[in-house]
Write a protein that binds this DNA or RNA. Structure first.
Lengths: 154, 154
DNA sequence: CATGAAAGGTTCATGTTGTCAACTTTTCAG
DNA sequence: CTGAAAAGTTGACAACATGAACCTTTCATG
């Protein structure tokens, strides 16, 4: 299945693909910057904002947070420590398995996260360049790219 | 897929846009992870790889690197220090303005950067889902999104 | 049931990234 | 010539990230 369904001999390294990869890199950098700025405007770091965003759907064990963000559990300990110290998050032991600590967003935490998300949607300058139809096309392409790969958030 | 709310007074927050933003966020996270992994496989950090990538087109002053990456110049000092210590990069004073230090990739540095770039092109699983035509469409959309915004690399 | 392996979190040591303020050197305007 | 401004560096400090060692809880197996 690794063998691509296209006809080219080296479909992964043709002109178009190279340029798309570069464009992607730029877009990724741009989004990353905007995300950091939006978080900083609410005196959150990027990592803290990411963790908080994960908790929108409900409490989550430390380990699962680490897996979702692809980092070591010990790293999450520190980030949650800081979020907890500022009242954005609580830690409580799981009833079923007392080894597990469930991290849950507080009122304040949820509010901050929702606010940040809102601000992001409006800050998306790049998208402003595209019309409705184009966004639809883009959406479909992105969907195709993401199904099959790891899709943590949604 | 409601089609009636397209008279958007708030074109930034319709259904499609919201979904595109979320998809983008996932794609950004995915690319970011892959980039870090690819860099780590060559014992480079993400930041070091980014600086090295910037030098592909030729030497660049410290300040310009900082501006392109949207961070403080003092931060670049440290990153370049480590790259220099490992022989990936050299610092030399600019002839015209001796305040300026031009950072240039060495043979080794260029090779590492090129290698990483190559590996990225092949590691791009998401792109594998798209055919040639679709990649072209995607490229055009990305181009549109990036022109007008800050376009550091290209 | 007892015991040891395994899993979930934390702690500690260490290194990298990032900011900010103070400083040196060089350039340039007056 | 003198002072302001620009380019880089340094030092102090916080956050992030990893890996190893450790504690507690769970669970499989004898």
């Amino acid at each position: 299945m690794d063998t691509q369904s296209t006809l080219a001999a080296t479909p992964q390294s043709d002109e178009i693909t190279l340029e798309v990869v570069d464009l992607m890199a730029n877009l990724v950098a741009l989004f990353h910057r905007e995300y950091e700025e939006a978080a900083a405007a609410r005196s959150l770091t990027g990592a803290q904002a990411k963790v908080l965003a994960l908790l929108r759907r409900g409490p989550m064990p430390m380990r699962q947070i680490a897996q979702t963000l692809s980092c070591e559990p010990s790293n999450i300990t520190g980030i949650v420590d800081r979020l907890e110290a500022r009242g954005f998050v609580t830690r409580e032991a799981d009833r079923q398995d007392r080894r597990v600590k469930l991290v849950a967003a507080t009122e304040t935490g949820s509010a901050a996260s929702a606010e940040l998300r809102e601000s992001l949607n409006f800050a998306r300058e790049p998208l402003a360049a595209l019309g409705h139809e184009e966004r639809t096309v883009l959406r479909d392409l992105l969907r195709r790219m993401l199904t099959g790969a790891a899709t943590p958030g949604a």
